[in-house]
Amino acid sequence: MTRRTPPRPVDVEQLFPEVAPLRRQTVRLHPRAGRPSWRDSSVGGPLLWPDREPWPLCPEHRGSPMAPIVQLYVADALGVVEFPPACDLLQVLWCPRAHDGRWVLPEVRWRAAGAVGTVREAPPLPAGTPYGHVPKPCVVHPELIAEYPSWDLPYPLWDALEPRFAQVEAETGWDYQYHLSTAPGTKLGGYPGWGQDPQWPDCSGCGKPMDHLLTVASSEADSAWTPFEDEGVRCESADLMLGDMGGIYLFECRSCPGRPVKDRFGS
């Protein structure tokens, strides 16, 4: 089943033309409980992992295997993120156990699906894995939508637009930040689903700001962004609980060799 996000209830660019140049495309993944295989894009599903390649282990918890979080084939990226040459598969894992000052420890792999050969099964996770740090297996329903900056809106522009934001909310009940700008939930590209002030990282190699790769969110529940197909329906999702219903944001540098990755957490 496809998932279709309702159009914004008002014309954002007509009301606030200043944000039009800041529009970005994002792919909402809409994870829903299911039985994906390694042939599928998924959240929390099995990975197409080569048997000849060791399974990643947490460098802080020796011998503790990382958990599959997201697998995405290039067709389901809908052109939002450019994959490295000869690669058609993105895989994200993380160690779900507690770390010094971090919620999870992520690992990002790009690979060519056709070169995998025999597939390795994921090892079992250790006992005591915190609840809500590993997603239940979910199929995904990729959907391309446009979004606008929320917490990432530059302060001078926010100050200039705030009176109009307030006027539109008073007249329609729609709040720019929560209803009209940045889509909630697990998504590829676009703007991070910040719940507070942005924490964009710089690349340690070149010093440039990194690009948002992926938001893995505890939930996408928000009545203004509920897909048509889910209205009035109780949907089983990935059952994540990252902090106080927060999210993990992954960033990458597309200029440096190996596309180094950094992560941030937000609640």
Score class of each variant (00 low, 15 high):
residue 2 T to N: 13
residue 2 T to C: 06
residue 5 T to I: 15
residue 6 P to I: 11
residue 13 E to V: 15
residue 13 E to A: 11
residue 14 Q to P: 00
residue 16 F to L: 13
residue 17 P to S: 13
residue 24 R to P: 01
residue 24 R to K: 15
residue 25 Q to E: 15
residue 26 T to G: 07
residue 36 P to T: 11
residue 37 S to Q: 07
residue 40 D to C: 06
residue 41 S to C: 03
residue 44 G to P: 08
residue 46 P to K: 01
residue 46 P to T: 07
residue 47 L to V: 10
residue 47 L to K: 04
residue 49 W to V: 01
residue 49 W to Q: 03
residue 53 E to P: 00
residue 54 P to W: 11
residue 56 P to L: 08
residue 58 C to H: 10
residue 59 P to G: 07
residue 59 P to F: 12
residue 61 H to R: 14
residue 62 R to A: 14
residue 63 G to I: 09
residue 64 S to K: 03
residue 65 P to A: 07
residue 65 P to I: 05
residue 66 M to T: 08
residue 68 P to V: 02
residue 69 I to F: 04
residue 70 V to E: 01
residue 72 L to W: 00
residue 72 L to H: 00
residue 72 L to C: 00
residue 74 V to A: 08
residue 74 V to H: 03
residue 76 D to F: 00
residue 78 L to Y: 02
residue 79 G to A: 02
residue 83 F to C: 06
residue 85 P to V: 05
residue 85 P to F: 03
residue 86 A to P: 00
residue 87 C to M: 04
residue 88 D to A: 09
residue 88 D to T: 02
residue 91 Q to I: 07
residue 95 C to M: 12
residue 96 P to C: 08
residue 96 P to S: 12
residue 96 P to F: 06
residue 100 D to N: 12
residue 101 G to Y: 01
residue 102 R to E: 14
residue 103 W to G: 15
residue 103 W to H: 07
residue 104 V to E: 05
residue 105 L to P: 00
residue 106 P to Y: 08
residue 109 R to T: 10
residue 111 R to P: 00
residue 112 A to V: 05
residue 113 A to N: 00
residue 115 A to Q: 12
residue 115 A to I: 00
residue 115 A to K: 10
residue 119 V to D: 03
residue 121 E to P: 00
residue 121 E to Q: 12
residue 123 P to M: 04
residue 123 P to E: 09
residue 124 P to H: 07
residue 127 A to P: 08
residue 127 A to G: 10
residue 129 T to S: 14
residue 131 Y to I: 13
residue 131 Y to G: 13
residue 132 G to N: 10
residue 132 G to S: 11
residue 141 H to M: 14
residue 143 E to C: 03
residue 144 L to F: 01
residue 145 I to V: 15
residue 145 I to F: 11
residue 147 E to L: 05
residue 147 E to N: 10
residue 148 Y to N: 09
residue 150 S to N: 15
residue 151 W to K: 05
residue 151 W to D: 06
residue 152 D to E: 15
residue 153 L to C: 09
residue 154 P to K: 10
residue 154 P to F: 07
residue 154 P to A: 09
residue 154 P to I: 09
residue 156 P to C: 13
residue 157 L to R: 05
residue 159 D to G: 01
residue 160 A to K: 13
residue 161 L to W: 05
residue 167 Q to P: 00
residue 171 E to S: 11
residue 171 E to I: 03
residue 173 G to N: 09
residue 174 W to S: 08
residue 174 W to A: 13
residue 174 W to L: 15
residue 175 D to F: 12
residue 176 Y to P: 02
residue 178 Y to L: 15
residue 179 H to W: 07
residue 181 S to L: 03
residue 181 S to K: 03
residue 182 T to V: 11
residue 186 T to P: 06
residue 187 K to D: 04
residue 187 K to C: 03
residue 188 L to M: 06
residue 193 G to D: 09
residue 201 P to M: 05
residue 202 D to N: 12
residue 202 D to E: 10
residue 204 S to C: 00
residue 204 S to M: 03
residue 207 G to M: 12
residue 215 T to C: 11
residue 216 V to W: 01
residue 221 A to G: 02
residue 224 A to Y: 04
residue 226 T to M: 14
residue 228 F to S: 04
residue 230 D to A: 13
residue 230 D to P: 01
residue 236 E to M: 05
residue 236 E to W: 06
residue 240 L to H: 03
residue 240 L to V: 07
residue 242 L to E: 01
residue 246 G to F: 04
residue 249 Y to D: 05
residue 249 Y to V: 07
residue 250 L to N: 02
residue 255 S to L: 12
residue 255 S to H: 09
residue 263 D to V: 12
residue 264 R to M: 10
residue 264 R to V: 10
residue 265 F to D: 02
residue 265 F to K: 00
residue 267 S to W: 08
